Simulated assay, not measured.
Amino acid sequence: MNYLILFILTTGAIIGGFSVFFVKKDHPQRLKLILAFSGAYLFAITVLHLLPDVYQGNNHEVGLFILGGFILQILLEQFSDGIEHGHIHKHSHQKSFPWGIMLSLSLHAFLEGMPIAAAHNQELVLGIAIHHIPAAFALGSVLLSNHISKKTTSILLIVFALMSPFGYLFSFSLKNGALLGEYYSSIMGIVIGIFLHISTTILFESTVDHRFTLKKTLAVSLGLLLALVGYLLH
């Protein structure tokens, strides 16, 4: 078990979630730039690292799990309103707890953490951590807009931040039991499908009329470049 992985996975969501108490949400430009960067980085590591790795065993059924992960993410977003890719909706007219958003987002984070125990992929860990920054920020925004107290919001953000580490710990325990190797390709396939959906959605939704401004182009280029450097140095 790698404690640095646990720290990185938790820190990304904590930074993104608790920044909601300090950042003015009326100016979402910075969040959009983070989204553009994380979307490009997620897409690049999926293409450069995850897809080649998962097909190394010549298991052609992996494609079914990738498709399943893509469809699963569509289903999860019916409950989460797209919070996974930083999509913030206004729910100020509601005063009920958004159970669907919290549960689906937690399941999403748990699934993302599962392949890490066998992948030993630094790019995957960093990608998940970066991706959780805008997702946690959006979750915190939705909780506050639903009149959830700051104390309860803080607790829930910590719970969300721990879900990917829990996924990692769970899969690590399976690995010690020699079970993860058998299901690794299937689990990774689902995560790849989720990543493909999220990253492409981010890249389209973070732009107006699908046009890239100079700042967003630079953010996307930086995300692609960082993933490419990791690929070349791997």
Rank of each mutant, 00 (worst) to 15 (best):
Y183E: 03
E205V: 12
E182H: 08
N176L: 10
K151Y: 13
G167C: 03
L224A: 10
S186G: 03
M163K: 06
S154M: 12
G167D: 03
L203H: 07
K216E: 10
A161T: 09
I202D: 02
I155A: 10
S154E: 07
L226F: 15
I158L: 15
G193R: 02
I194G: 00
G193L: 02
S164D: 11
I202H: 04
K175T: 06
G230V: 05
V159Q: 10
I194H: 03
G223R: 09
L179W: 06
F212H: 09
S199W: 12
I198R: 03
F204V: 12
T207L: 13
K215H: 13
K150P: 05
L224T: 10
F212Y: 14
T153E: 09
R211T: 11
H197W: 07
R211G: 00
T207E: 06
L196F: 03
S186T: 09
K175R: 11
G189Q: 03
V208Q: 14
S173C: 04
L179D: 00
A178V: 02
E205Y: 14
S171M: 05
T152H: 13
L156W: 10
S164Y: 15
S173W: 12
Y168A: 02
G177I: 01
F172T: 13
E205Q: 15
G167P: 04
F166Q: 05
I155Y: 12
V208M: 09
I187W: 04
S149W: 13
S149F: 12
E182L: 04
F172W: 15
G189Y: 05
T152E: 11
G223W: 10
L224G: 05
V208A: 11
Y231E: 06
F160R: 05
F195E: 00
I192H: 03
R211H: 15
I187F: 09
Y168C: 01
A161M: 09
T217I: 06
L222A: 15
F212V: 14
T152Y: 13
L162W: 06
V220I: 15
L232R: 14
I192L: 09
H234V: 00
G223H: 07
I155M: 10
E182F: 06
L162T: 06
E205T: 14
F166N: 02
T217N: 15
S164P: 11
K216P: 03
H210E: 04
F212N: 07
S206T: 05
I202T: 08
H234F: 01
L169I: 12
H197T: 03
F160I: 07
I155H: 11
L233H: 11
L224W: 12
S154P: 08
M163T: 11
K151L: 13
G223D: 04
L162Q: 04
F204T: 14
T207I: 10
L162Y: 06
V220M: 12
K216Y: 09
S154Y: 12
V208T: 14
L196Y: 01
T213S: 13
R211I: 07
M188G: 01
N176P: 01
S185V: 02
L228E: 02
K216W: 09
K216L: 05
Y184A: 00
S149N: 05
G189N: 01
T217P: 07
S173H: 11
L157M: 10
E182D: 05
I194A: 00
L157A: 02
M188C: 08
L232G: 06
P165R: 07
K150F: 15
F195D: 00
I194V: 04
